[in-house]
Nucleic acid binder design. Structure first.
Length: 950
RNA sequence: GCCGGGUUGGCGGAAUGGUAGACGCGAUGGUCUCAAAAACCAUUGUCCGCAAGGGCGUGCGGGUUCGAAUCCCGCACCCGGCACCA
């Protein structure tokens, strides 16, 4: 296989052929013109982007399209990157022709670790290299002819953008979640409620009696952004904590492959868990792919169940467990606490009780020794290591708890199959009806009573549906009840006895929001002499990053788990130590030295597109409402179409929804969701080839032999399929495509390769098909010999009218559904028809050019101009199908015998059933196939089908 | 292990209960040309047949239906997410 682009041999031919050179001249000319005329500028209702005379455009429909904005990598683009950008551009151009006011722009997600690491290597400031990368990317993308409003582009590192990212952080910091009203409210209202006694101070204290520090601590416990000591991923070799997504499955850092340890460190968290229910429930109100909704639902992981208290004689505090199966409470035969659970120490007895099973002791002489050993071993393991070994291990604490429903004494264990981070970190074990508990019980010789009986089932553990058995005490009986009924019965009983209550827990955890990095947004936070975090006033925003001597955090030996992170900013003393007047005179403060994670900017950027230059607000309410506000009663509002890869299904999309909802609660936006419709594009993949040593060889120099083997330099190589990447030596760049074919051909090819949501392999040699198509369209309008326009005002033949209007009808449907591959196929068919019939009538050519415009906009503009138009085709009305031409004069009717096609008839579309039956039964081949057999039934679906059953 | 998506010519794909393979690549033959490239025309699922026509065919096995790539049941394989979540 050769993937070297074929250069069109045009220099030797007349200058009127649509070659790559001509395409380039056309494309550059129109790109300049679009820019100078502001063709894609979208008017705003108010502010600096409002326009005189735009009232009409603002009154009609609006359409806000967004791409998941790119990270400006230094490597440049390959042909896979623009796929989504081309698709959204096609949609935007189509909507403009439909009369919508279209907002489409592209910003840059420019903070992040790669730029910082590059800065560490080169010593150059990441801002410098990042801005260079953005400039290079802008150049590559401009050459694609994307219809973006350039005035609305920004980068998340722009001080003006950072300012609002920090402003939003302050909004979140200064807000708390009111569970009763089920929305966030300003923290000032909480303080007011404490002051006037409308709300009880936690712990029963009197507000007025508390010191300033104590009050701050109480308030901080409510904030939606708060500091807490939390277990985080600490990579000493990198010198930074990492987000979960930056840690590989085997517990190492994605970058650098350093070991990662779980450490308790004081970090910023966002109280996203307060929004768990709304984030979950509002998924039903947005138009997203079902798999993405499901991933978010699973991630949030809401489960209904109960908290149940188990008393332990001699211990003040009961063990509280969470269970989703309170109906199996009578079957609880032991308990398990996570190794990190607070009560473990209190539960650990001095000596093994009389007759303790040898398997329970871990071979230790006393419970204290066994527990200490077990906890130490658990602590030394990473989460991943813990999960690797699925064999159940654990040790007995020496204590027994009392099962509240039957008073039975059940042993309490510590085992690492119970996780501290979920539920209460303690469980009641029901081995009869839980596979994990069953395994543990088997290893430790514990009883496995049955309390649920399924129909026709007799093996334990049984986790299916059934009715409760052996589940009664003097006061309550579950026997005979279904699982669901038994749950509500026992919860009612527990609540009555004060032994537990129905509850809901979530898998979702609060969002770790700080990083020990240089290249991120600084927090607008300082600490006073009591270490109380204090928000900087809006007037002090943005807090700029100081220049630092070294962009790298302090790094350690990769396995030095006990080392402490030291962010680069902490080393800039003159920046950290600052004197400010925050209302009570100039005082010394200490700045927060962590920075925000890469997700911050992308959590609200949809808002900034609507009002990108606003100095006073993150977006004027009128602009936000116009572009994002709900258009139907009860709607969520949000971006009309958001296109991007499925890899952001959970994190980015969840974070952005969370911030948007906080801003909604606080009255800053009218939309409840950031993205109303989401579409996941597929990826362009590529083949890569390795030689016998496993080294990648240049893919474009590999040839395929007739027997399907692959060869490079006379050596056999193996083919693999996957990503395009420098190290895989299989990168094809847009620049190569512009050079060899032009941007329009590249765009058409990418859109015609297959459905947008499916990944597919890149094949350079197939691009020529799209070029041939555009050349045929070109020839319909332009005489290649003379360059003259060939279009006439000739009337169209009936057959052409039919093809044309059926094409318009079909293409419109495809455009609405984003089926660009089939839309292009229909345009090719129309073009082939017009070519074959030598049609030159304007009435056929102009609709074709218009329908082509979203895909090949430069070519369409050029042809449109040659057809005599002086205005851009961008706002020319999209063709409409005339119903009278949609019905063909003759249709093909298929005649089947026993469901197999045996003949075809040309009939009028309004043929009657009887007529059609008669025609079908007279068809010679049908007669021969029936061969005199008795006709039992004739199914007629006039005018398309007749099926004869014999 | 659980959840989700997928499997159609040599290749990318089309068809969502009614002509399987639209459109494109590649391949083969032809026109033009001194020749080649480009362009254009024709053929191209597979097997049998001179042809007319017929058999087989949408991962595998079953079912529903006059009729199934499409709906249902079971299985295999590939891709993605989650993974001791109580």
């Amino acid at each position: 296989m050769t993937t070297t682009p074929q250069h069109s041999a045009s220099t030797t031919e007349s200058g009127h052929r649509y070659t790559s050179e001509l395409a380039e001249r056309i494309e550059l000319r129109w790109q300049d013109r679009w820019e100078s005329e502001g063709t894609f500028d979208a008017p705003n209702p108010v502010g600096d982007l409002a326009e005189d005379g735009a009232a009409e455009r603002l009154e009609g429909d609006k359409y806000f399209i967004m791409d998941m904005f790119p990270y400006p990598s230094g490597a440049g683009l390959h042909v896979g990157h623009p796929l989504g950008y081309i698709a959204t551009d096609v949609v935007g151009r189509y909507r403009r022709m439909r009369g919508d006011n279209v907002l489409h722009a592209l910003g840059y997600d420019a903070f992040g670790l790669p730029a910082e690491l590059y800065a560490v290597q080169t010593g150059r400031h990441p801002r410098e290299t990042t801005l260079e990368n953005i400039a290079n990317m802008r150049r590559q993308l401009r050459r694609l002819g994307l219809g973006h409003d350039p005035r609305r582009s920004f980068a998340t590192i722009d001080p003006d953008f950072v300012r609002w990212t920090q402003w939003i952080f302050l909004q979140i910091f200064n807000a708390w979640y009111d569970e009763e009203l089920d929305r966030a409210r300003p923290i000032s209202e909480l303080i007011e409620e404490f002051e006037n006694g409308a709300r009880d101070v936690p712990g029963g204290a009197v507000w007025a009696d508390l010191s300033a520090k104590e009050r701050a601590d109480v308030i901080d416990g409510y904030r939606l952004a708060y500091l807490s000591e939390a277990p985080v991923n600490w990579a000493p070799g990198l010198g930074t904590v990492l987000a979960n997504e930056e840690v590989t499955a085997d517990g190492r850092s994605e970058r650098g492959n350093f070991p990662v340890f779980r450490r308790n460190l004081k970090q910023w968290q966002m109280r996203i868990t307060a929004y768990a229910d709304r984030l979950l429930d509002d998924l039903d109100r947005v138009d997203w792919p079902e798999p993405v909704k499901l991933m978010q639902r699973n991630w949030i992981g809401r489960s209904h169940g109960a908290h149940v208290q188990f008393e332990v004689p001699g211990i003040d505090e009961p063990i509280v467990v969470f269970t989703t199966r309170p109906d199996t409470l009578f079957g609880a035969s032991y308990m398990v606490l996570a190794p990190e659970h607070d009560l473990v120490e209190a539960l650990t007895t001095d000596a093994w009780p009389e007759g303790t099973d040898a398997r329970w002791t871990g071979g230790a002489a006393t419970p204290a020794e066994a527990i200490a050993g077990y906890r130490a071993a658990a602590a030394a393991k990473s989460d991943v290591e813990r999960q690797e070994n699925k064999e159940k291990t654990g040790v007995f604490t020496g204590s027994f708890a009392i099962n509240p429903v039957n008073g039975e004494r059940i042993p309490v264990f510590v085992a690492d199959y119970v996780l501290m981070g979920y539920g209460t970190g303690a469980i009641m074990a029901v081995p009869g009806h839980d596979e994990r508990d069953f395994e543990f019980a088997e290893s430790f010789g514990l009883p496995t009573p049955r309390v649920v009986q399924g129909e026709g089932e007799d093996a334990l553990p049984f986790t299916g549906d059934g009715v409760a058995v052996n589940s009664a005490n003097d006061e309550v009986s579950l026997n005979g009840l279904t699982v669901a009924d038994a749950k509500s019965r026992i919860i009612a009983w527990l609540e009555e006895k004060g032994q537990g209550e129905g509850t809901t827990t979530y898998r979702l955890r609060d969002w770790l929001f700080s990083r020990q990095r240089y290249w991120g947004e600084p927090f607008p936070i300082v600490y006073d002499e009591n270490d109380v975090p204090i928000a900087l006033p809006e007037s002090m925003l943005p807090v700029d990053l100081p220049d630092v001597p070294d962009y790298s955090p302090r790094t350690y030996a990769p396995d030095d788990a006990e080392s402490e992170p030291e962010p680069p900013l902490a080393r800039v003393r003159e920046w950290v130590e600052v004197e400010l007047d925050l209302g009570d005179g100039p005082k010394r403060y200490r700045r927060e030295t962590n920075t925000m994670p890469n997700w911050a900017g992308s959590s609200w950027y949809e808002l900034r597109y609507t009002d990108p230059h606003n100095r006073d607000r993150l977006a004027d309410p009128a602009n936000e409402k116009y572009w994002l506000g709900p258009r139907t009663p009860g709607g969520t509002g949000g971006v009309d179409l958001y296109v991007g890869g499925v890899e952001h299904a959970v994190l980015h999309l969840l974070y952005a929804r969370f911030w948007h909802k906080v801003l909604f609660d606080l009255g800053h936006v009218t939309s409840e969701e950031p993205f109303h419709r989401l579409f996941n594009q597929g990826y362009i993949q590529a083949y890569a080839y390795t030689d016998v040593r496993g080294t990648y060889v240049p893919a474009d120099e590999v040839t395929e032999a007739d027997d399907g083997t692959y060869w490079y330099n006379g050596e056999r190589v193996e083919r693999e399929y996957g990503k395009m990447g420098k190290s895989l030596k299989n990168v094809v760049t847009p620049d190569e495509m512009y050079e060899a074919y032009g941007a329009d051909t590249f765009r058409v090819y990418e859109m015609s390769m297959g459905p947008l949501d499916v990944s597919r392999p890149w094949e350079t040699r197939a691009v020529v098909g799209s070029q041939r198509f555009l050349q045929r369209v070109w020839r319909l309008v332009v005489d290649e010999e003379t360059g003259a326009t060939r279009v006439t005002d000739d009337a169209l033949a009936p057959a052409t009218l039919g093809v044309l209007h059926r094409t318009i009808d079909g293409v419109r449907g495809d455009m609405e559904e984003l089926r660009f591959n089939t839309a292009i196929a229909k345009l090719i068919e129309l073009t082939n028809h017009l070519t074959k019939e030598s049609v030159t009538g304007r009435a056929a050519i102009e609709p074709l050019v218009k329908m082509l415009a979203p895909f090949a906009p430069h070519l369409a503009e050029e042809l449109w101009e040659r057809l005599g138009h002086t205005e851009t085709i961008t706002y020319a009305p999209y063709p409409e199908a005339d119903a009278q031409y949609l019905v063909a004069e003759q249709v093909t009717c298929v005649v089947q015998v026993q469901g197999k096609v045996r003949g075809k008839l040309q009939v009028s579309p309004d043929v009657s059933d009887d007529e059609l039956t008669a025609l079908a039964l007279a068809e010679p081949n049908v007669v021969r196939t029936i061969d005199g057999r008795e006709i039992r039934k004739v199914i007629v679906r006039a005018p398309k089908l007749v099926n004869v059953v014999v």
